[in-house]
Structure formats: structure tokens, C-alpha cells
Computed example of a mutant assay.
Amino acid sequence: RAGCPVLAVSIEEPPTDEIPPAVLAAAEAFDSWEKLLATSLREHGVGAEQAAQLATLVVAAVEGTVAMCRAKRSTQPLDRTAEQLQALIAAAVKG
């Protein structure tokens, strides 16, 4: 309902040139999510570079989709994105 707080912090323009601690924490959260996904993909036989790229795509797609769902007041973007991500992941794991 409230969206992703990590995304919300990330898109706020800092008032100064200094990067606020909350933005640094958001970057660490995204990095952590990507690493977890990439590790899982590698454990399922996906090559390291493809796993890293796919993990970034998944995080970016889900975060963008959350914003779309909020704007549209619908879960349809999430459903569509999930279906496509599942197909990409399945193909990578079988690959």
C-alpha cells in the first residue's frame, strides 16, 4: 500500500551535494537484494555475469512496477512483470 520505502528514499533529490545517509542505506539495500538474487541464480546454474545482470533487471523491474501499480491503482503491472520475469528466469536456469 505504501510502496517501497527504499525506492522513495532513492528518488528524493538531496538538498546538498552530500549524499544523505538514507540514500546510502537505500543503495546498500538494492545492492543486497541484487546479490541475494544473483547468488540464488548462480546456485541454480546461471553463469555469474548473467546472474548479476538478471538480478539487476529483477530489482529494477519490481521497483518500477511498484510505482506503476501505485499510480494506476492496480496490480496488473505487477502481474505482467512477474510473468515475464518468471519466463526470463526459467530460461536462464534451463540455459
Results as ranks from 00 to 15, higher is better:
A8Q: 14
A90N: 08
L24R: 15
A29E: 03
L36I: 07
E13M: 14
C69N: 10
A92K: 01
A38G: 01
S74R: 04
S32E: 10
E18S: 14
A87Q: 14
C4W: 02
E12L: 12
I89R: 03
R70S: 12
A92M: 05
K35C: 13
L78V: 03
L57P: 00
M68P: 02
Q76D: 13
T81I: 09
E43S: 12
V59H: 05
R73L: 11
A82W: 05
G95C: 07
E49P: 03
A90E: 10
K72P: 05
R73F: 08
L36D: 05
R1P: 13
T16G: 11
E28T: 14
L54H: 01
A27M: 11
A38I: 01
P14V: 10
A8F: 06
S74D: 13
Q53R: 11
P15C: 11
A61L: 06
P21Y: 08
L85G: 01
G3H: 00
R1V: 14
R73N: 10
P14T: 08
T39D: 00
I19G: 04
A67H: 05
T81N: 06
A90Q: 05
S74V: 15
L88A: 10
E13C: 14
L88R: 13
P21G: 05
A52Q: 06
A2P: 06
R70L: 10
E12D: 07
A60W: 04
A92H: 02
S40E: 06
S32Y: 11
S10L: 14
V93H: 02
V62F: 07
R73D: 03
K94A: 11
P5T: 07
S74Q: 12
A90H: 12
K94P: 06
P14E: 01
P14I: 12
C69K: 05
A27K: 11
A61Y: 03
D79G: 14
V6A: 15
L88C: 12
M68Y: 04
A61V: 06
R1Q: 14
A71G: 08
E28L: 13
E13F: 13
S32D: 10
V6M: 07
L41W: 01
L37V: 09
V6P: 01
R1T: 14
P21A: 12
